[in-house]
Design a binder for these strands. Structure first.
Lengths: 182, 182
DNA sequence: TTCTGTTGACTGACCAGTCGGTCATTTATT
DNA sequence: AATAAATGACCGACTGGTCAGTCAACAGAA
């Protein structure tokens, strides 16, 4: 319901009705509407986090191939994420609103850090294998790539024509070309 | 005030008080709170749009140099945008909320399209100059780059340590390396 | 009977938008 | 120049409505 109508657009009564329980019951399990919302956020983080860790476990392949696999599995999530993606925007907004700022901001920072870490490890691996150039900054590339994925979803959300998988594959090819030793 | 407390966190009465005018006066100029908010959005679009068009007017330079210039002037905006960036998140959320969806969604789609166009023109120019490879998709690279810039701001917002200018410069170097004819 | 879990009516706070009215400035009249 | 009439920007008290959170009461199990 948060995904459909946003945080403020969803009342606790609505949620209770949809869940076929009384409003009071919700307060048996959550201290506040905000707590409930944060729980949804944590659920969402766990869900997407799982998708990432699974996809890079393709060991043995080259770093470039693994980057591509990660990209592919992330971007192909789009179709099933599409409807829930609004939630992410709601979370961003929540992190920016002064009331809930603290917890969401910390959680997001952590989330991005973890994600960047995974990607940068992958790149470091590529360097030590002699596959990628030594003069690149793995952290920087990781941060930018993570950002790109995020933002492609965002653009796709605004524009139904936009195909994040195709775009990201073509772009990643360029990036990998730039990473490789020439 | 929207940047400080978000859309729902800001009451029209608050705005009136801050502006030292009566609440009724606001309704002389705007039909609704939503209209007022959309006006802020349009103001913001104009502001950032100007920053972009100025920075790519550095003609004569190579496509790579111009890309770098665009990147630099965008990312160095961060310090002055930092405090207002929350607005963007508010706008995203607004675009996702069912009530205001239409206008914000259309505006964002347009905004991204325009921005992608600028960057892709720059890349196409690089190709026709023989500077960049012919087998790349300018649209895709442009879309991804635009996204990356957006997302670096986002990450920077969550993490004060994060330096979007440095990261983007290092990343762009890799991308340009991948774009160039080898 | 007691305990556990559930419920929805109720409350108090909040808030967008309205509307009747004020008053400084401008325009018309004498 | 002096006076009167018209204007419209400005105001804030008020209305109608929403909603998060509470709590007294209820139902079912043990």
């Amino acid at each position: 319901m948060f995904a459909q109508n946003g945080y403020t657009g969803t009342s606790v009564a609505d949620i209770a009705a949809r869940a076929d329980i009384g409003k009071g019951t919700i307060y048996e399990y959550f201290n506040s509407k905000e707590d409930l919302f944060f729980a949804v956020f944590e659920w969402y983080c766990k869900k997407t986090g799982a998708a990432v860790t699974v996809s890079i476990s393709v060991l043995g392949a080259s770093a470039a191939q693994r980057l591509d696999a990660l990209n592919g599995s992330l971007m192909s999530l789009w179709d099933e994420i599409k409807d829930v993606f609004v939630l992410v925007m709601e979370f961003w907004a929540a992190a920016s609103s002064s009331k809930m700022r603290q917890r969401f901001q910390i959680a997001f920072k952590q989330l991005y850090q973890d994600f960047r870490r995974i990607v940068s490890d992958l790149i470091v691996d590529g360097i030590s294998r002699g596959e990628f150039r030594e003069d690149i900054d793995p952290e920087a590339v990781a941060a930018a790539l993570v950002g790109t994925w995020d933002a492609l979803f965002l653009q796709a959300w605004f524009d139904p024509i936009f195909d994040p998988l195709e775009i990201s594959q073509k772009f990643l090819a360029v990036v990998i070309q730039g990473l490789k030793k020439s």
